[in-house]
Design a protein around this nucleic acid. Sequence first.
RNA 1: UGCCGGAUAGCUCAAUUGGCAGAGCGCCUGACUCUGGAUCAGGAGGUUCUAGGUUCAAGCCCUAGUCUGGCAGCCA
Length: 575
Amino acid sequence: MDKIVTGDEGDSREIHETDEKTLEIPSDFIRDAIRDDLAQGRFDRVHTRFPPEPNAYLHIGHAKAVWIDYGIARDFGGKFNLRFDDTNPTKEDQEFVDAIIEDVKWLGADWEDRLLFGSDYFDQMYDWAVELIKKGKSYVCDLSAEELSKTRGTLTSPGIDSPYRNRSVEENLDLFARMKAGEFPDGARTLRAKIDMASPNIVMRDPFMYRIRHTEHHRQGAKWCIYPSYDWAHGLEDSIEGVTHSLCSLEYEIHRPLYDWFLEQLGVYHPRQIEFPRLKLPYTVMSKRKFIELVDGGFVEGYDDPRMPTLAGLRRRGYTAESIARFCRRIGISKADSVIEWHVLEDCVREELNASAQRVMAVMNPIKVVLTNYPEDQVEYVDAINNPEDPSAGTRKVPFSRELYLEQDDFREVPPPKFFRLTPGREVRLRYGYFIKCEEVVKDENGEIVELRCTYDPATRGGDSPDGRKVKATLHWVSAKHAIPVEVRLYDRLFVKEDPDDAEEGQDYLSNLNPESVQVTTAHIEPSVTGAQPGARYQFERQGYFCVDKTSSEGNLVFNRTVSLKDSWAKIAKA
RNA sequence: UGCCGGAUAGCUCAAUUGGCAGAGCGCCUGACUCUGGAUCAGGAGGUUCUAGGUUCAAGCCCUAGUCUGGCAGCCA
């Protein structure tokens, strides 16, 4: 039986037996390809990497990539590296390195001791470039960026050779060394691979390997003034690290021939690149440039604005790492470049929070209710279940008194059909409290309802009627004098169009911003949440899941709505 | 222009070498009878884009066609 071993320093510990264990690994086209590679002996272990460029915050699309890279390594008992692809100093920053590390850690991917940086291999890459020059496979080109793009040809016509293409090896070596030494200004020269200017694949038309950039690198400082291109660097980084499967998104597909070409010319260890489609979600944007514009333009509060699809934003919104992992598992990996609806992610977080979130009662739009037959100064503490899905979560005491707040939506003076909540003359249950009956509607001079006068049935304490009487609705409530006012932020989609780029003539995606993407309101909440710390998650009964925002403080609690509960009444009411 | 992909339930997507076409949401029904428009369980729902072909057997392989998406930077 074939044994698959792992470890790149000869610690060939046995992890799987192909015929049996790998069959238990979920199937998708990438895992299948890897399984096949192992079975055919093309590789004898699995080693992946997640290679972000530290120039932006990670978003939900990266979470999919992380879960493919890390998930596959884990499934096959292999290794996973977190590697920063920091080859372009002009856009990169330590701030992003730190944020990305936090995000990947939060997601739950484990890179063990392999936190790596592509820039740490610059010396090796340089030596390899010299080697390619010596082999006549690379040359220094003096064409400007503009000239280069002109001579590259078009989608329909071949490019033309650079006049510098046939420089001697000696001259190339000399020029390249001087490029490195800093003798030339930015953009004056490039090092290019000598491949084929007539290739139908434009990526193969003598792509550049190094450009001159007199810019300090966030990690390497001023050591370098020439920086490698993605195409040149990426395969080398994978090779150096002993990566077996270099998994990347579909836009790199046409780069694969170049990835392979460099490694073949060098004759070094050669990983396999496999591409998968990026995650797409409607009503949002996922590009670094647009994130920056949204933040700098003040359209959102920051990279961690709860409306943003960034991991920082989703985290602040209340999404858990587990719900995101669940989401990634559910959508799987296929070759189709598909758009996944938000409700898939929302279901995932509801599923998890339904099982784990502490229940609490909060009234968003209060209507005052006075229990006319309830003693003036009496206060009772009723037992409320913390989580009906989890008995071990126990119970808590909630104060009940003569004056209460109910949800405005839970009362209709003239009820529409199928409305089972409070209405004049009808009896309903107050959750964990009593049955109450609406006797009178008090209005001000403008005809606006100011309060409801109800009676309660003392025999129904706790919510049960000894005579077996039934009510159709159970409403949440708070005691008016015990309730704490808190700030609540209700979020909606950031853009009004599925594809924000689908804008009117002369307009861009910013014109599609949803003006109602956030609604700030005050809720009256039961006192048990006093002292809730940022990040704490609750279900506001009958409403949704909320978490305490980072701006929250002891005296001024702030909640973000992660997601509402499913609400089919909203649809019935609309119809 | 080249390369790659997709077309499957009302919607968004799955389907390991060809072997009874699945999930989530939506819809319908039921259970719980203190979230009763929450939650849970069950059910209905498909001529797999079209026309041919190979095969005992085709969503999958082959041929032709129609529609549709992505990529093509001195970014990664």
